[in-house]
Design a protein around this nucleic acid. Structure first.
Lengths: 230, 230
DNA sequence: CACTACATGTCGACT
DNA sequence: AGTCGACGTGTAGTG
């Protein structure tokens, strides 16, 4: 990884065009061709950047001009950095990427879906899973189930259910119901938490909201129901 | 800006939980309290991060443990970095943020809206602009126009039109049409490019899709129509 | 502090 | 190569 602290300006041309006036900034060049220009504030986002694969050209020593190119679809992305003054330019050998074990995440939507696929009854009484990721021509339904009366039930799973989540399952239901087989398909929105407005909209559209708890699903805690059901 | 190159591991707990195993990485601490952990590959995104406002505690000199806290709504976000070995730890004074003139962008949605406001006929034959950012109680309609027959036309502008864009203009139309005055208001989705599924959904809802070209709008290139219209 | 919509969103998965 | 949906999305604007 190369870290350059320099007074620099930059011009980007690609999906849009930007001009970055001259100031003191950090230029980060990664082993894989990533390049990021960060100011000393502004949080998460770099001012300018280019993701790999890139071609990086440097002029001058110390560098006076760095041009980064990227083949993006039909046209080309281009980032030109003009370095007026280099205060620091160091390269650190940070070892092979394999040594850098990846970030492990816990609690994302995929986990929720796995757990609910194993325990569909948490999405509604008597539900049985027919298929995960049931395909429709506007995207897959997270879980397709049948209920105790053998009626179809489409389940959409979210970490946080928003008004947009309701729109999404509504689209699926609309689409599914054009097929007579699914004419009476119900919808269930399952989430760890619900925005109040999402609940209201879902209710007005006859979509059930089911609040699920990761800990309960994992059996770390048993829901009250189980105490009686077993 | 402080740049620490160190063999480190990290634990994040907040919106979800993550564990980052030990490896050599860059820890960037900005003047405003931002903190980013970057690997030597992986492009744009930091492995872990925290955006301001944050409280940063450091233990040891050289640092052995850095804990970043952030008050996030009800609960607290927490990022703990364990530094096994510090290879470099430098701080650069990069001047006041005011010296860092901002990034100037050209070609974002706002520009498209300006240009279409000046040339509404590009959104549909005979369209005349009545108002930009027409307010409704669920958000502003980008352009409100009338067509040759004096019918109302609501225009939603996007750089790239997605299913979500169709949902957005659908919500506006639903709302507008509750007012008898706009009962027959049409909808137009204008964008530089359309996702196929967006086109399908729009068509099924009677919303017109109009592909616009920035260069044409700017008059850098003239559309064929003009050659005959003038 | 809420909700909304934009972003060079990025990123991964799948076709 | 193109499309789709999740993301600790981040970020700005508004009420």
């Amino acid at each position: 990884m190369r870290l350059i602290v320099a007074k620099c300006s930059a011009i980007y041309s690609g999906r849009l065009d930007t001009v970055l006036p001259e100031a003191l900034r950090l230029i980060m060049v990664k082993e894989d061709g990533s390049i990021l220009i960060h100011a000393d504030s502004g949080g998460y986002k770099p001012l300018n950047w280019m993701t790999p694969p890139t071609v990086i050209e440097q002029e001058g020593e110390p560098p006076q001009r760095i041009v980064v190119r990227k083949h993006a679809g039909r046209s080309e992305d281009r980032l030109e950095i003009i370095l007026a003054e280099v205060l620091s330019d160091v390269t650190h050998d940070m070892g092979s990427p394999e040594e850098d074990a990846g970030l492990a995440k816990d609690g994302v939507e995929a986990h929720l879906q796995e757990l609910l696929a194993e325990r569909p009854q948490h999405c509604g009484d008597g539900l049985r899973l027919v298929r995960r990721e049931w395909p429709t021509d506007i995207g897959p339904v997270d879980l397709m189930c049948r209920d105790a009366e053998d009626e179809w039930v489409a389940v959409e799973i979210k970490r946080i259910a928003t008004i947009e989540s309701v729109e999404q399952i509504t689209r699926y239901l609309e689409r599914l119901r054009t097929d007579p087989q699914f004419a009476s398909c119900r919808g269930v929105l399952a989430a760890q938490s619900f925005k109040p407005q999402a609940r209201v909209l879902a209710q007005s559209r006859g979509i059930d909201c089911v609040e699920v708890d990761l800990a309960v699903l994992r059996g770390e805690r048993e829901p009250e129901l189980r105490l009686f059901a077993t």
